[in-house]
Amino acid sequence: MKNNHSSLRAQSKTASLIKLIVAAVILIVLIVMPFVGGAYIRNILILIFLYMAVSQMWNLLAGYTGLVSLGMQAFIGLAGYVLALTTQQYGKPIWLAFILAAVIAVVFALIISLPIFKMKGVYFTIGTWIIAEALYVFFANWAFVKYSIGYNITVAYRMNLNTFYYLCLVIGIVSIAVVLFILRSKTGLALMAMRDNEDAAEVRGVRLYRTKLMCFLIASVVTAIAGVALYLNLAYIRPTNAFSIEWTVSMVFIVIIGGIGTIEGPIIGAIIYVLLSQILYNFAGYSNLILGIIAVILIMVAPKGIMGYLEERFAWDIFGIRRRIKPKS
């Protein structure tokens, strides 16, 4: 028995060491990539980091708390406008736009949580979408933000692209770290329980409203921060693109194919989505249709997404969120 426990401990240590080495290698590769990969690879990676960050947040909501939002574009659009106004209208630095976007996002999320948290299921989904659409109408008719004309975000042309790359890398890593921290904490147990059975979770003592609100606020902040970076990358903003449902549709695609309710899913999904988008760039009219077909086929083959399938088939737990019984020494 004692030998068995020692062997388990040794196996667990080896697995942790391998994970650490792999993570370090990936990080080093990502750090040196701007210097060895060229501009195209750098831009692809920027998109992967940012789409992964927003998808992690959508997954946190839909995959764990059951809040299926179709209105995350509200936070991206608000963040884009905060960036445009801060840097174009008032000539203030970019970092201030990040802070303001985070603050405005959390305040906006708190305000809209009052009505939309009274809605459940599909009503919540539609409610979030309507709020984003209302923002679109409001911004398109608001003189202060130049109606539908929008802004060219010229500060984006003056920034160092390698610095921007590292900023996006940090946003991507932070989004994973935030979800990882939550899932490894006590709240992680509540989220996994809610993901599996909300009614039972409540009867076991989980406070649904409080947990959902906390995740909604965190998701709004991280989405807004990534939104500022997305608009630095786009370098222009109009109400049509700022509050377009396409932002959320891409998050849904990424999470569904990667694996909903898994931390690894949005990473795998974002890589696939960005690479596919590049390939489908030349089929502008059909790209969404092709993405849709791919998603449907994948759902039929692996209903829980790629990571969900691997987790179920091989009990993969790359980020170590599972609770394990510690072998007694």
Binding site: L189, M192, A193, R195, D196, V203, R204, G205, V206, I325
Partner: peptide, 25 residues
């Protein structure tokens, strides 16, 4: 039974302790 299917039996019981009894993990 309304177990949390994506969690292990061990995690199910821990969740009961943490949220039902307010215990540390």
């Amino acid at each position: 039974p309304k177990s949390f299917e994506g969690m292990t039996a061990y995690e199910n019981i821990i969740t009961g302790g943490v949220y039902g009894a307010g215990m540390s993990e």
